[in-house]
């Protein structure tokens, strides 16, 4: 079966996020960018499916600028067979991305689409679900375990109430939790080979879908800094402060 894996180029998890001084967004100039960690889990799962003989071809897809080629090269180095870059200068919203992906699904006819449950830049947690709705496919979100069995997959989901196991029929959408697997590091020879693997570049506009933004960002601000603690001299002072300053007693 063919597996489509969606990946996104985001500000690296370990970078200290800085908000632009004009409040228009997050500063991404000269900032290290990496593959969204949840998407790494998605790709790793596809690679394991291929090793287990379940998957036959893995296609990585991203929506972004030309710089997103870096992320696709990482995906190819990890072991994806080929990659598609949907070139969009203005980053579409989750609905726009879901629409674009649905067109790729029509063309590629995968049996499974794996996406990270969310991207760590906007934390929307919407694209997978919207894609499932647009395609009218079953979806298994927040997967921490996936076992393929004929035309279906048994998925363990991480929910607030604990673990839920569901069985869904293929074709299906899966979104990943970090516990799904431990993504591999690409080997250097594979990184070099990946430079020769094909990346298809397609303009987002050529899909003929409506990408008009429906959200307006009013302002972006950094969370309020945590106030430093104070050392009190004794229990009486502590109680006094709790009563009169903090108002919790």
């Amino acid at each position: 079966m063919k597996v489509l894996v969606a990946v996104k180029r985001v500000v690296d998890y370990n970078v200290r996020i800085r908000v632009k001084s004009d409040g228009s967004g997050v500063d991404t100039d000269n900032v290290v960018m990496s593959m969204n960690p949840f998407d790494e889990n998605g790709l790793e799962e596809a690679l394991r499916m291929k090793q287990a003989g379940v998957a036959t071809e893995i296609v990585a897809v991203t929506v972004g600028t030309e710089q997103s080629q870096d992320t696709l090269r990482s995906a190819l180095a990890m072991g994806a067979d080929r990659a598609i870059l949907i070139n969009a200068e203005e980053a579409p919203e989750p609905l726009g991305i879901a629409k674009l992906l649905s067109k790729v699904v029509e063309q590629e006819q995968p049996q499974v689409v794996i996406l990270g449950k969310q991207a760590i830049d906007d934390d929307s947690n919407q694209t997978g679900q919207m894609l499932a709705a647009l395609l009218n496919w079953p979806q298994g979100t927040f997967a921490s375990k996936a076992e393929f069995e004929g035309d279906s997959v048994n998925l363990t989901r991480e929910t607030d109430a604990g673990l839920e196991t569901i069985k869904i029929n293929l074709p299906a959408i899966i979104t990943t939790d970090l516990r799904l697997n431990e993504p591999r590091l690409p080997k250097l020879p594979d990184i070099m080979k990946a430079k020769k693997k094909p990346i298809d570049m397609v303009e987002a506009a050529s899909f003929g879908v409506d990408l008009t933004p429906r959200l307006e960002v009013v302002s972006v601000s950094a969370p309020e800094a945590r106030k430093p603690g104070v050392i009190v001299a004794n229990a009486a002072e502590l109680i006094d402060k709790l009563k009169n300053e903090a108002g919790v007693l």
Partner: peptide, 11 residues
């Protein structure tokens, strides 16, 4: 004989 390269700051 072999080698890997980090793809993110976490790696």
């Amino acid at each position: 004989v072999d080698g890997v390269m980090s793809q993110s700051l976490q790696q």
